[in-house]
Design a protein around this nucleic acid. Structure first.
Lengths: 206, 206
DNA sequence: ACATGTGAACTGCTTCACAGCG
DNA sequence: CGCTGTGAAGCAGTTCACATGT
């Protein structure tokens, strides 16, 4: 099976959002053209993206909203609930711990960790902050699927190495640093300062 | 002038980070090979990216660390300070308001806004939350450059339209929704749930 | 008639390879 | 001789255009 582009997966997520929106408005059928308009892309793009996984549409008619949404959830792995842990109980970790957008989509926050004794044991948004030292033992019984890293840059690589050792295979990194992980671990880095620099560049070059 | 790829601009930001790291270690010269190794790319990629803006290297030698860093700062528009406002004083807005990674790079948080009377006037991390109703008047005298949107999805489009009206030409959006802006406005959307879905996809397809 | 699904064409980013210069 | 700068080649992602099914 040929590898699908990262950008295509992002678009699938988008399409799913739009389908849910259409579904809640009571629409039962949608064309690639309508999906494209909603997502600022082209109808060919939509059809190509979908055709990668099969043929879900009816010629002359379009796609069944419910059916396509279900298929996308399946493709994206959203039929099950994923257990997520947050490492780093600073402001950003705290914000993510209570972010409703995650649980809404089946990402369940299982625990929040930190290494700072002043934070361990504190309660934030319903979670008692646990010591990072308990992570390994916790994972042995609970086994979370995804780790969100919100520790300072200096600590990030050490934390990620530990996280990978406990068997976690997917990481979302908010530390402004490029992390080394084995090939079989998926990692997405969100570097907010870098995004701002992109805007700075855009402002400076017009 | 040919348009440069978005991915290339991201890499320039990365290179600058590495250069600063090298600089602090006292290195004065660096080759495209060494930069590439640090950034998980290739030396040709590095040279191509840089050659887009001129020739900064010395053949047989490499690049002057200080000179290249300065040139990148100039290219990225980081020689000046940018005024940033945050709209939405929820947990995420609050986390960003105090995030040191921004000020470190010359992005100065000028104000935090919200529309909730319960939040307006409250002090968070040194900022008194201002009413969104004062934004237009504030902008007339202060004129921020960049707006970070951390309001709920339902409010985001309305807020962005207002922000654009006040003359802001760069937006970083954390609301999980695709926003409409005029062509002359730069916008970067960070959709954290969508990033997690990318990880979910990766976990489901191995 | 309408909208999908898909090869083929195209566009643009990345990698290669080497001439050019220090 | 080493490393840059850059055309040319290669590759991946996007768009086109049309045959196909309903």
């Amino acid at each position: 099976m040929k590898r699908i582009a990262d950008s295509a997966v992002r678009r699938l997520s988008l399409y799913l959002r739009f389908l849910e929106e259409f579904e809640s408005r009571g629409l039962t059928t949608i064309s690639s053209d309508e999906l494209a308009a909603r997502g600022r892309t082209t109808s060919s793009q939509v059809r190509k993206d979908l055709s990668f996984f099969g043929s879900f549409g009816k010629r002359g008619l379009g796609y069944s909203v419910a059916e396509l949404a279900a298929r996308l959830r399946q493709i994206l792995g959203l039929e099950r609930e994923w257990q997520v842990i947050i490492i780093g109980a600073g402001k950003i970790g705290e914000a993510l711990a209570q972010y409703r957008g995650f649980s809404q989509r089946g990402f369940r926050i299982a625990a929040v960790y930190d290494s700072d004794p002043a934070k361990i044991g504190r309660r934030i948004d319903g979670f008692v902050v646990r010591s990072i030292d308990t992570l390994r033992a916790d994972q042995a019984k609970r086994s979370a699927d995804i780790a969100i890293i919100t520790v300072p840059a200096e600590a990030a690589q050490r934390v990620v190495t530990l996280v990978v050792q406990t068997g976690i295979r997917a990481i979302m990194n908010f530390a402004p640093i490029q992390l080394q992980v084995p090939d079989n671990v998926a990692i997405k880095t969100v570097n907010m300062a870098m995004e701002l620099e992109g805007l700075s560049f855009a402002l400076s070059n017009r």
